[in-house]
Simulated assay, not measured.
Amino acid sequence: MEGSLSSAHLTVLKSIRKHIQYLDDEVAELDAGIRNIVQTQYREPWQLLQTLPGVDEIAAAGLIAEIGDDISAFGSRESLASWAGLCPGNNESAGKRKSGKTRKGNQSLRRLMCEISQAAVKTKSQFKGKHQSLTIRRGYKRSIIAIGHKMLRVIYCILTKLTPYKDPEIDYEALTVQRNAPRWLQMLQKYNYLPALTKE
């Protein structure tokens, strides 16, 4: 900042800084309370949701708060997407698409899914490639809605089958080997299944 600050300016800035710190402390306390609840009452679905790209601890807790852990109440993936307001409208006549507006739905869940989608498209997952192809044809905002719709359908499957997410773009076997190969080699050498490797 350029210029001088008077004592009045400093007083106001100190007050603002204290208020920001107070809000940060309140948010941290609420986050801790949310984590405690989901870890004790919804541990399995909470952990499974975090296997999805773009979903962290708080986002997973938010999904459980909005959807619940009994996903069968929605009946189908389509019903869940419609309830969230992430099911695009279909108004087509004579081969011409007139409108693609999304329906009204749960605004909190829709907002959360948009945040998750924006985080997911930055990861090395199928959602990144899908987003890039959609953005060219439909623009950034509409592609984020489309990714949110796709991810919500995946969430429905995760909570229905209670299985972690596996991305088709990722070779999990190769990742496992990459992470564990040094340890495996050390153990094989330790028990004389492989000769010790010497550095030249």
Rank of each mutant, 00 (worst) to 15 (best):
A61S: 09
I20M: 11
K18E: 15
S143V: 01
K150D: 06
K96R: 08
R97W: 09
E57G: 05
L23M: 11
K104R: 14
T198A: 12
N36A: 15
D25G: 05
S82K: 15
K166M: 11
H9F: 03
L134C: 05
Q107D: 13
Y193R: 06
T11E: 10
L48A: 00
A60R: 02
S143P: 01
L152Y: 04
R179W: 07
N91E: 13
L49M: 02
T40N: 11
R137Q: 13
D25Y: 04
R97V: 15
R17Y: 10
T135W: 01
E173V: 05
A174L: 14
I170R: 02
T123F: 04
A181K: 13
R142G: 03
K166V: 12
I155H: 01
E44Q: 14
K98P: 00
M113E: 02
S15N: 10
D31W: 03
A174T: 07
R111N: 13
G89C: 11
Q186L: 11
R77K: 15
T135R: 10
R35M: 08
I67N: 02
G85R: 01
S4Q: 15
A59Y: 09
P182W: 10
W184Q: 13
S15E: 14
I158H: 01
H9Y: 07
L30C: 08
L162D: 06
G3A: 05
E26Y: 02
Q41H: 11
A181R: 15
R110C: 06
I147V: 15
A119K: 07
T176H: 13
Y165H: 05
L134Y: 09
I67D: 04
A84C: 08
L63G: 01
Q118S: 09
Q39P: 01
A65L: 08
L185E: 13
V27A: 05
